[in-house]
Simulated assay, not measured.
Amino acid sequence: MRGTVTIIDKGNVRVHSYTAPDTALNVTTQLIETPSRLIAVDGQVTVADADEVVEYAKGLGKPLDRLIITHAHPDHYQGAHRFDAPIHALAVTRDEMAARGDLKDPTGIPVPAAETAPTDLITPGTEVIDGVPFVFEAVSGGETTEQLLIRLPEHGVLVAQDLVYHHTHVFVGNNDVARWLDILQALSDPAYDTVLPGHGLPAGPDVFAEMAEYLQAAQELLGDDGQAYKQAIIERFPSYGSPFVIDIGNYYLFGTPF
């Protein structure tokens, strides 16, 4: 298996977190297993990793109810069409995905926009799926313009996705670090002992302080030279994975090719 699967048992809910390898940005797809079905969150950057998630999901012996796309960054939906399930997203995410048009995954496999387009729109609020309350919230700013946050309040699970990275270099290309720090402070809640990131392995509540430390360092180190910033942030966090994420952010900030 290319990726890493972490299983978290929460009684009548089990979370299977698939984290892609470092070369695929440590993107994490969450498979939330309820009593009789599976809900997937985010669809991977490469088709190969999406296929691996789908094959793993088949082994669980429950139908895949839906794939939820939390935001319109391609690394979270380029493999969405491989899940063969209804694709759910916020309306703003659907529109931003459509605006990006056809894409290719990092290996060059075509990703037609029509095949990854959301089929069902998420309205913020509570939806009970297979007896389990899912609370959907739209969060503006931070890593991107708008993204979906999912709470499982009865199980202490916060599906943060790209509001949180875990021991992986962070995309700051949206240039909205101050807002992101405010979001992290608001999300820190002892009622949620399991935090599921969009990049990296599942974490506990300590991840919010770790993320804040990284973002504060980004504020300090980020000037007008992307390569200097990359060198400095890697020196500050040498154990963090997927430094290519920094190159992607530098492209958005400075137009630096990658």
Rank of each mutant, 00 (worst) to 15 (best):
T168E: 01
P153M: 05
D225R: 00
K10E: 14
A24H: 00
L215Q: 12
L149R: 15
H16Y: 12
G59C: 04
H167S: 14
V177G: 06
D49G: 02
R179T: 14
G255K: 03
N26R: 14
H81R: 11
A209Y: 07
V157W: 08
E96K: 15
R66L: 10
T168D: 04
G79R: 08
A80L: 02
G241M: 09
D95W: 05
D224T: 15
Q219L: 13
Y229C: 00
T70F: 04
P124A: 10
V13C: 05
Q185I: 09
V53Q: 04
T119Y: 09
V172Q: 06
H155R: 11
E235S: 15
L25A: 03
Q30F: 00
D130C: 08
G173N: 07
A217S: 13
P243I: 06
I68D: 00
H76L: 13
Q147A: 13
T29S: 14
V135F: 13
A217V: 10
I68M: 06
Y229T: 09
F136P: 06
L253F: 06
A91Y: 05
D206E: 15
A98K: 11
A232D: 03
D225V: 04
D102I: 11
V53I: 04
I109C: 09
L181Y: 11
Q147V: 00
M1C: 10
T93F: 12
G141M: 09
G249T: 07
A209D: 15
P112R: 02
K58C: 04
G59E: 07
E213N: 14
H167A: 13
A57N: 01
H16E: 08
D51T: 10
V170C: 09
V27F: 02
T168F: 00
G3C: 08
T19A: 02
N250R: 13
A98I: 14
H73N: 15
D130E: 05
H155S: 07
Y240L: 02
G141V: 08
I150K: 07
L103A: 15
Y192A: 08
G204F: 11
R2W: 05
E127K: 10
T34M: 11
F134L: 04
P190E: 07
P110R: 10
V41R: 01
N174G: 04
I122Y: 04
R100M: 12
R151T: 05
S188V: 07
G3N: 00
V139T: 14
Q231L: 04
V111T: 12
Y252M: 08
D51Q: 13
D247E: 13
N174F: 13
Y165L: 11
T46L: 11
D224R: 11
L90N: 04
G108C: 10
L149F: 09
G61L: 12
V111Y: 10
I87Y: 09
P257E: 03
A113H: 14
P118M: 06
N12P: 14
Y251G: 01
T194K: 03
I68T: 06
T46G: 04
T168L: 07
D189R: 09
D225C: 11
P35T: 00
L67M: 07
L201V: 02
H81I: 11
R179H: 05
E55T: 15
T19Q: 08
E52H: 13
Q147C: 03
A113Q: 12
H199G: 00
